[in-house]
Computed example of a mutant assay.
Amino acid sequence: MSKEVFHSLLKRYLEGRCTEEEKKIVEQWYNVLDREGLPAYQESELEAMDDRLWATLSQKLDDTTETRRVSFFRRRNIQLGMAASLIAGLLLMGYLVSIDHATPDAIAREAGATLQMRQNMTLLPVSVQLEDGTRVTLAPGAVLQYPDRFAANKREVFLTGEAFFEVSKDKQRPFLVLSEDLITQVVGTSFIVKAQGAGHPSEVAVVTGKVMVSRNTEGAILRGLLTEEHQVYLTPNQRAVLDLETEELAVSLVAEPVPLSAEDAPAESIVFEFEEAPLKIVLRNLERAYGITIQPEDVNLYNCTFTGDLAGEDLETRLEFICSSVGAGHTIEGTTIRITGKGCPGKQ
Rank of each mutant, 00 (worst) to 15 (best):
S2D: 11
E4A: 12
H7N: 13
C18N: 09
E21V: 08
I25W: 06
Q28M: 14
R35A: 12
G37F: 04
Y41F: 15
Q42I: 05
M49N: 09
D50W: 11
D51M: 03
D51L: 08
R52N: 13
R52Y: 10
Q59W: 08
K60R: 15
T64G: 11
T65V: 06
F72C: 03
M82E: 04
M82K: 00
G89C: 08
L90N: 07
L91K: 01
T103N: 01
R109V: 13
E110R: 07
Q116W: 05
T122L: 04
T122R: 05
S127K: 12
S127T: 11
S127I: 13
V128L: 12
D132Y: 08
P140Y: 11
A152M: 11
R155I: 00
V157N: 05
R173I: 01
L176K: 07
L176G: 00
S179M: 08
E180Q: 10
L182R: 00
Q185V: 03
Q185I: 05
T189S: 05
S190I: 05
V193E: 02
V193A: 04
G209W: 02
V211H: 01
E218F: 11
I221T: 10
L225F: 14
L226T: 04
E229Q: 15
E229S: 14
H230Q: 14
V232S: 01
L244W: 02
T246W: 09
E248C: 08
V251Q: 02
S252D: 06
E256H: 13
A262H: 06
I270Q: 06
L279M: 15
V282E: 14
L283I: 15
G291F: 02
G291P: 03
I294Y: 02
I294W: 06
C304K: 02
F306M: 11
L310R: 00
E316R: 10
L319N: 05
L319T: 01
F321E: 12
G327T: 08
T340E: 12
G343E: 07
K347C: 14
